[in-house]
């Protein structure tokens, strides 16, 4: 087991080293997100007000079941019956019919879900990519269809919020149906939640009201005082959702997409 962790660790380092050193053209299916600044939704008094985001490449679409099927074919250790429990809980690819048969509950064009953070990261490495960070993901996701920053666009925020009022469906819609945002990225909102590399760094305790209270030094968290924009309910929910996760969790509405250094 230890050996496996080391392998992943080494693989990560080598992937990053390679990516950093190369000046490849943009891979297909990715768009370039320009350099900018992300203002964290939650932040402690000691945290930086703004986080610089270096230009990076981001998948236009979430990873689909079809793509993940190719991955588990090439990497049998990530097949449902083979996966180590340490890296994925009992729900791993639960909606599939078999190791290599997604079946009717997991349409090939729909985003892959019921995948753990470990599995998502292994997939990204297999593509010489990585998972985006919270800052990168949120920075890309605040773009509305018409503007790099949709934060003050009430109709955009309302449209994003709409997803939470839509009944959860057993089978997910195909990717690519959502409108492209300012950068050309689709489905960041309205289809599935997405894993990010540092999902567990959001300091939300689970009790939304305690955060930002007496423990402010540790948790700026989900308490409204710590929030940069208390009206931004979707951001509240994304931060809340991420902080409820552990890296081996596999969840019905949780998929991922990949990023890459430029």
């Amino acid at each position: 087991m230890l050996k496996r962790i080391q392998l992943i660790f080494l693989a990560t380092i080598s992937a990053w080293t390679l990516a950093a050193g190369a000046a490849d053209p943009l891979p297909t299916g990715m768009v370039r997100i320009p350099t900018g600044v992300y203002r964290p939704f939650f932040r402690a008094a000691t945290d930086a007000k703004e986080i610089p985001v270096k230009s990076f490449a981001l998948d236009v679409l979430p990873v689909t079941t079809r793509e993940f099927l190719q991955f588990v074919r090439a990497h049998p250790l990530w097949q449902r019956s083979q996966v180590k429990r340490l890296f994925a809980d009992d729900s791993y690819l639960k909606n599939w019919s078999g190791d290599l048969e997604p079946g009717t509950n997991a349409p090939l064009d729909a985003p892959v879900t019921f995948v753990s953070w470990f599995a998502a990261r292994a997939y990204a490495e297999s593509q010489s990519k990585r998972l985006p960070t919270v800052a990168e993901w949120e920075y890309a996701a605040q773009a509305s269809p018409t503007s790099a920053n949709g934060e003050n666009d009430a109709s955009f925020k309302r449209a994003v919020l709409q997803w939470y009022s839509t009944p959860a469906s057993q089978t997910l819609a195909p990717t690519g149906r959502g409108a492209a945002n300012f950068y050309g990225v689709r489905d960041l909102h309205g289809l599935v939640w997405e894993w990010v590399l540092d999902f567990n760094t959001a300091m939300v305790t689970g009790d939304a009201r305690a955060d930002g209270g007496v423990d402010a030094q540790y948790f700026c968290g989900a308490g409204a005082q710590g929030a940069q924009d208390p009206d931004n309910f979707p951001a509240f929910m994304r931060y809340g959702f991420r902080s409820s996760l552990k890296a081996d969790y596999c969840v019905h509405n949780l998929g991922f997409r990949c990023a890459k250094d430029l």
């Binding site: 689970g206 009790d207 969840v251």
Partner: peptide, 11 residues
């Protein structure tokens, strides 16, 4: 009980 019962879907 809120801090002790924070639970992701499927958990």
């Amino acid at each position: 009980g809120a801090t002790s019962s924070f639970t992701a879907p499927g958990h």
